[in-house]
Design a protein around this nucleic acid. Structure first.
Length: 309
DNA sequence: AATGGAAACAACCGCCTTGAG
DNA sequence: TCTCAAGGCGGTTGTTTCCAT
């Protein structure tokens, strides 16, 4: 396919996104949802291809992104999931609310991989390097998939020696919003409690799925940015937002938390549980369907909700 | 203060899958 | 059944930031 068809038609911008472009895209999706991505740039007034817009939204602008450094629990979960799933980053990301496949992939390639190597563990097979090398010799042509590879458990891993509770403010707030309702749910990685794992580090942690069943997510537009006015709704935008605390869950029916609620339905006591689901085509498609559906519905709901501010 | 390498992050490329016509 | 557009994903590259010297 090469370059996307939409990119052939006209000169389109490439490279880093400017704040103005971010604002245009975020505003458009908040108001209208993305619908057909290929039509988004045109409707939003962007000189980008739809695919680029999609990526920018998913990896950077989406309001449910956690951002900030990964916790030790998250890293260990990634390692365990990678042992089961291989480089299926999207499936791994599905188990880490607020994290994107790109983010996880980058973390893996830039950090975790090296840490594992330093500990003498082959990042591909999750086995001790020597053993993995020998195994490579014997299994070179056996066609095993990553999911078939490893039963190695990372009992002794504790990769992060000094995790920094470093969670920068969301891009969402960058454009005049602050999501200050329940930070433990929304953005505060320090309160993120991934499912319990069979790892040394997590065995002592109080890991439980801490996602509350009710999420009082308040979206407060601070509107320092006047350009957020659209569709002649500037009056609504300038309304003081403290007067009425808006609960996202009321508007959105727990929109961004499908991943987390799915997690609750399917407690991740062990990565095998995930693998069991993922290995089933039916469950796989269900997961994917749910995920894609989430974002689509979420943006539509956000758009709907946005008018209330 | 300058600089070079490493690490982290953002975005693009190209392939695959899917669904509509 | 075939074709094509669009979405999704993983690999890779380019850019920026950090840090040691």
């Amino acid at each position: 396919m090469g370059r996307h068809s939409c990119c052939h038609k006209q000169k389109l911008r490439k490279g880093l996104w400017s704040p103005e472009e971010d604002e245009k895209l975020a505003r458009f999706i908040m108001m209208h949802g993305h619908g057909c991505w290929s039509s988004v740039p045109k409707l939003a007034g962007l000189q980008r291809c739809g695919k680029s817009c999609r990526l920018r939204w998913i990896n950077y602008l989406r309001p449910d992104l956690k951002r900030g450094t990964f916790s030790e629990e998250e890293e260990n979960l990634i390692i365990e999931l990678h042992a089961s799933l291989g480089n299926r980053w999207s499936q791994i990301a599905a188990q880490l609310p607020g994290r994107t496949d790109n983010e996880i992939k980058n973390l893996w390639n830039s950090s975790i991989k090296k840490k594992l190597m330093q500990q003498g563990i082959d990042p591909n097979t999750h086995k001790p390097l020597l053993q993995a090398m020998n195994r490579d010799e014997t299994l070179r042509d056996d066609g095993q998939t990553p999911t078939e590879r490893s039963t190695f458990t990372i009992d002794t891993l504790s990769l992060r020696t000094n995790p920094k509770p470093d969670n920068p403010p969301s891009l969402f707030s960058k454009f005049g919003f602050s999501l200050d309702s329940n930070p433990s749910v929304w953005f505060d990685a320090s309160n993120f409690s991934p499912p319990s794992l069979k790892t040394a580090s997590s065995s002592s942690s109080t890991s439980s799925s801490s996602m509350p069943s009710e999420l009082g997510l308040n979206l407060k537009p601070s509107f320092g940015i006047s350009t957020w006015g659209i569709a002649g709704d500037s009056q609504a935008q300038t309304q003081p937002c403290d007067a009425e605390e808006v609960k996202w869950s009321d508007y959105l029916n727990l929109p961004f938390l499908v991943t987390s609620t799915a997690q609750e339905r399917q407690p991740l006591g062990a990565a095998e549980n995930i693998l069991r689901n993922v290995s089933s085509d039916e469950a796989k498609s269900t997961t994917m369907e749910a995920r894609s559906d989430v974002y689509c519905k979420d943006t539509v709901r956000l758009a709907t909700s946005f008018g209330k501010f």
